[in-house]
Design a protein around this nucleic acid. Structure first.
Lengths: 223, 223, 223, 223
DNA sequence: CATGAATGAGCCTTCATTCAT
DNA sequence: CATGAATGAAGGCTCATTCAT
């Protein structure tokens, strides 16, 4: 060993480069998944998109599925993570759910490529669903939501959002009707008309800006 | 003169055998699609499931996609076709939609393999959706449904049913909660409580029995 | 046995039909070979061209190669057989070879599809070559041909004809230059100018008309 | 800073290996084509002959036809390219054509496997034919060649050489008679006897040695 | 760590051949 | 004899994976 500093320096440089390469692969992968779906892409697609070699790909991911899951996680952190704090800060459960859903659907409407991605990759959203269940139970307890079973309420909320996103992906130029969707959702959860009126009139936080993926999905809104 | 019956007889026999083989491949294919999804299966899967040779497969279908579409068509005719007449006979639009949905979800709950199939093959159901749209517009006009936009109402109805079916496929032993699902669906469409009570109390026609596929999907109910 | 005549009658009818089917397959096959070459066609091509079933094909030929050879034989009999008697009747060897070659090349020029066929199927012509060798030796003995070795002379005569036919196949609209080809051929065989003049001035028998295949290859002449 | 030599070195090594493999496949392919013809061989034949895997084959050639064309090009460069300069240096056109043809046929006689190859792959030789046409026209202008049409002369020269090579391939142990073939060829082109004598008496350059393919085709001469 | 040539298993497709009717 | 559905061997092609450099 010539210098005791070198190994550490090398390691640090290595880790930095490693993280950067990994992030670079993930970024490129989103575009590939959005374009070709969750299962069609082959390793070469990612290799080409990222401008790396086959060998390098295997240094970071074992299979395309591993990459898919890493990509989903990475995006969820970003998309939901950027909206969650805003919504979580709202104490009123009906307003919270309404606002979170409106935020998400508006963002989706403005990023139709994202709609295509989640339509192709249904595994996405588990994180959001856990929060949804909690909100539904809270709302049921407090009496603002009225439904015969939380399972059915969950089917309603999860189903309508998924369906709306699918529709946006299928008809990219049509109006998104996001607030109308949230309206019937709340109606289905048993929110009374006055309350419904109130929560839909609330303004939406403006700061909802997923950082990493915004540019990847940015297309244009028809809200 | 050779007997004039012979050639005809030969042809008839050939056609019969051909039809039988085709039907046999379709029947086996349903199970494969339900198990592996719409795109994952390879020709060998169908070949093995049907107990035929590769060559025979190609005598009937060029690609797995051609088989998929043939299978969808074959099943839709059967499943929806068997329930439609029953439901169509009901003049009251709310009762009609409620009953049709209850029938379908009960049947799905009793045939969990069907749930897996439609979950994996989302193209299914276009036939049913067209009728759904008509019913929604009718109900809106007559005032029994109240929602801000038919698109949102459609997302609600289509989404909640799809989501319920997916849930049944994912948790085969859990209770299906079919009527609760229909309850929140109608609530979301703006049906008033008294009306809701009434239509949900109605009895369901018992004759809904898809012929071809019943045995293929029969598993057991947790309604 | 009811009648002693029946079996014979049946056999005769059978043989007749059999011969007819065989000839029908051969006729159709010529077109297929001319179009697709000697090796590319598959059994289905012949089956389709003849309007018969696969099974019937196998009743007459085991492989496409067997059919190819049968077709060659069938055509050679026809094409060469129709010209040979005319030429064989000429006692003068130089005139005989010249006239036979002129006849063949003119016929080939008028049937370009035939040129394509023999270009694709080089096995053809063995019959003609045996006569060629005999003529060459005769002419050498009688002094009208002068060449250092009969093998070389054969290469010359066989080569130039094959090449000319290939050229006609390759450039179907160009002039065939049949007599010029025969001219240099005879020159190469050492025929002296006066003799050459004489034999090329002779008229060609008009009756050279292959019967079976004429219509199959008929295209148009650019002699 | 990482050593700047490394990436370049890696690339250079990769390119070298790649070139070697490609050349290796081409070398092995010649034998396969010579043995089985231009169209009969399947990818496995080349894979086995080269001792590589199917995948590797596809890294270099998409189809057997692509390989065929690459092989032809590769050999033509070699075989004709090695003889052309020698012959082109001869100013006298009759002597040039005679010597070039004698060189080629002798070489062919000494490499019978080559004869088999060109017999099976008739596309070969376009390069040589262009020069042939030029020589024929030159000789006709200068009066040393006498023939009624250059097309016929070309058929003669190209046809006799092709035929001689085919014969050598068909009867590998027989005498090649190369000079006798050239003799009748010149006679056919109208070269007068004295001139013919002269050009055939000339000595042949000894240096005609195709480099790449010599060992591939070397078999033994029967000139 | 990065590279990309080499590998071979897996899947797709064609087509000669058989055989019950 | 004629028919054509069924067969499966043969060949084509893709792509995940390995490994020497």
């Amino acid at each position: 060993m010539i210098s005791p500093h070198k190994p550490d320096h090398r390691r640090r440089v290595g880790v930095e480069r490693s993280q950067k390469t990994r992030a670079h692969i993930l970024e490129s992968a989103v575009g590939v998944f959005a374009l070709k779906g969750a299962h069609a892409p082959v390793i070469d697609d990612f290799v080409r998109a990222a401008g790396i070699s086959r060998g390098t790909f295997y240094n970071y991911f074992d299979t395309t599925h591993a990459l898919l899951h890493a990509t989903i996680e990475w995006l969820e952190d970003d998309v939901f993570g950027s909206m969650e704090p805003e919504a979580a800060a709202i104490p009123d459960v009906a307003l919270r759910l309404a606002t979170a859903t409106r935020m998400y659907l508006r963002w989706a409407a403005a990023h139709r490529r994202w709609c295509a991605f989640v339509t192709h990759v249904p595994q996405i959203g588990t994180l959001a669903r856990r929060r949804l269940l909690r909100d539904l139970r809270d709302g049921q307890k407090s009496g603002v939501f009225r439904f015969p079973h939380v399972q059915a309420a969950h089917d309603l909320a999860a189903g309508i959002v998924a369906q709306a996103v699918q529709r946006m992906a299928a008809t990219p130029r049509a109006a998104a009707r996001t607030d109308e969707v949230v309206h019937v959702m709340l109606q289905g959860l048993g929110v009374n008309p006055a309350e419904l009126q109130r929560v839909m009139a609330a303004s939406i936080p403006v700061s909802a800006r997923p950082a990493k993926s915004a540019s990847l999905f940015k297309t244009g809104s028809n809200d």
